[in-house]
Amino acid sequence: MTDAPPKMSARDVSVFYGDKQAVKNVSIQIDMDKVTAFIGPSGCGKSTFLRTFNRMNDTVASARVEGLVTLDGEDIYSPAMDVVQLRARVGMVFQKPNPFPKSIFENVAYGPRIHGLAASKPDLEGIVESALNRAGLWEEVKDRLQDSGTALSGGQQQRLCIARAIAVDPEVILMDEPASALDPIATAKIEELIGELRGRYAIVIVTHNMQQAARVSQRTAFFHLGELVEYGETDAMFTAPRMERTKDYITGRYG
C-alpha cells in the first residue's frame, strides 16, 4: 500500500519577528488521518509555527515567513492563494474561547453564510445542527440557539468555536492549546472530541501538556528554542525518544 501524500507540509520554514528569528528551518508533514501534536516549553516557537499553516502570521506587521508551506501540494504563500479561502480550508481554534458576541446559531452560521455554502434557510439550519452535533454540543444548546454564545460555560464556548470552525467544512483544523483555559472535565470533552474528529480532518494541536499529547495524538513534534528537535510516532517518542533534548524534556528536566 502506498502512503497517501501529506495533507500539508512545511519545508525549511523560518519565521522572523523583525530581526528576531522565532522558528528555524522547520520541515514537517501533516497527514490527513492522524492528529499531530506540537509540544515544547513556552516560547519555543510551536504556536508561531502552527500559524504558518493558515497564514495567521500575516496579521502581525513585523512577521516574515520564509520557506515553503503547501496544502495538497499547493504553495499557500503564493500570490495566487486566496487567504480567505485558505482560512476556510484550514480552520483555527484558539487558546481562549472567542465566540462572537452573537447568538449560538449566528456563531456557527457566520462562516457558511459568508462563504455562500447554504442555498436556503433550511440548508443553513442543517449545517448549523450538523456542526454543533459534530462538536458534541447540539444536545446541550438545541433549545437555546438564540442565546448569546458568550453566555455558555468555558468548555461549551470552546466547543462552539470548534463547531464554528467545522461549519465551513475545512480540511485541516489547527488548535492552539484549546484546553489550557478549561477545567479537567471540559478538557476531557475536548480531547474526546478530537478523537471523534480524527480522520475527517487533518488535526494539529499545540499543547504544553505532554499527557494530553500522548492521549490525543498519533504523531508528535518536539520544539525547543525555535527548532524542531524530533518528530515521529507519539508512542515511540514518549517511550524511546531518539534525542537527548527530547528525553530531558519528557522526563521533566526542563520546560
Rank of each mutant, 00 (worst) to 15 (best):
Y110L: 09
A135D: 01
F94W: 10
S103D: 01
F100C: 04
L117W: 06
R89A: 05
Q146K: 04
E125H: 15
L132R: 01
G149P: 04
M92Y: 07
D147A: 14
R113K: 15
L137E: 00
G111P: 15
A119C: 10
Y110Q: 06
R113Q: 13
L145D: 01
G91A: 08
A131D: 01
F100I: 04
G116C: 14
A118S: 11
A109Q: 04
A119H: 11
G111I: 13
R87S: 02
P122A: 14
V90L: 02
N107C: 07
F105I: 11
L86K: 00
L145N: 04
K102E: 03
S120K: 10
G91K: 00
L117T: 10
H115P: 04
L86G: 00
G91P: 02
Q95L: 04
E140C: 06
A109S: 13
Y110E: 11
N133M: 12
L137H: 08
P122T: 12
D123A: 15
R113P: 05
E139R: 06
V84S: 14
A118L: 05
A131Q: 02
K96C: 06
L124M: 13
E129W: 08
E129A: 14
R134Y: 00
V84P: 02
S120F: 04
S148P: 12
L137P: 00
S120N: 08
K96S: 05
K96D: 04
V83I: 15
S103Y: 06
G111M: 03
F105E: 08
L86H: 00
A88Y: 04
L137M: 02
G136R: 03
E139D: 15
Q95K: 00
E129D: 07
Q85G: 08
A131E: 01
G149I: 11
E106R: 07
G126K: 14
G116D: 08
V141H: 00
N98I: 12
V128K: 01
R87D: 03
D123M: 15
R113F: 11
W138E: 08
G136P: 06
V84H: 06
D143T: 15
P101S: 08
P112G: 10
A131K: 00
E106G: 11
A119E: 13
R134K: 09
R87T: 07
K142R: 09
P112V: 13
I104W: 02
A135W: 03
Q95F: 05
V90Q: 02
V83N: 02
H115L: 14
R87V: 06
P97A: 12
E129F: 10
E106S: 13
W138F: 15
D147V: 14
L132A: 00
R89Y: 02
E129Y: 06
V108S: 05
A88P: 10
I114E: 10
R87M: 07
A118P: 10
K102W: 09
R89P: 08
S103L: 09
K121Q: 15
R134G: 11
P101N: 08
P99E: 03
D143R: 07
L124H: 09
P112L: 14
N98H: 00
E140Y: 09
L117D: 05
D123F: 07
A88S: 12
G149H: 09
P112Y: 03
I127A: 02
E106Y: 09
I127D: 04
P112S: 03
H115C: 07
D123I: 07
